[in-house]
Amino acid sequence: MNHKSRTADIHSAKAEQQVPWLEWLASAIGLLLVVGIFGVIGWQAFNGATMPPAIKVEIESVTPVEGGYRVLFRAHNTAGEAAAQVGIEGMVSAAGADTETSQVVLDYVPGHSVRQGGLFFTHDPHSGSLAVRAIGFAKP
């Protein structure tokens, strides 16, 4: 009996010791997260988060698909503000043929972020010159 109650005492003592340790861990993680998040947001406040969007388009790949060619691109917003309704236009101009234009609209390109998309052409972009650029955006 005596022995039993002693083990119970040890157990409850252990539990009392363990709880603050876990609590400290949880609060340390919480504090780190909060400080980290506020740090990142505060940092962008002083680093051009309100610069209007500037969108750079890079061509990733050109692949023949059924009915034409698929051009994959990455639109990279190099400024801090997000852009909405970003129009992307691609032009294939081959010698002796009409210029072919394809367009697509990206819903959002957040600041300093990358969105991917694709354009379809019926003429081979390799046969002439291919230019893809952003033609406009709206403020979200």
């Binding site: 400290w24 949880a26 609060s27 919480g30 504090l31 997260l33 909060v34 998040i37």
Partner: peptide, 14 residues
Amino acid sequence: FLHFTLAGYGVALL
């Protein structure tokens, strides 16, 4: 505040 509120907000963020 440290043990419960910040830990709770950390959980919410995660």
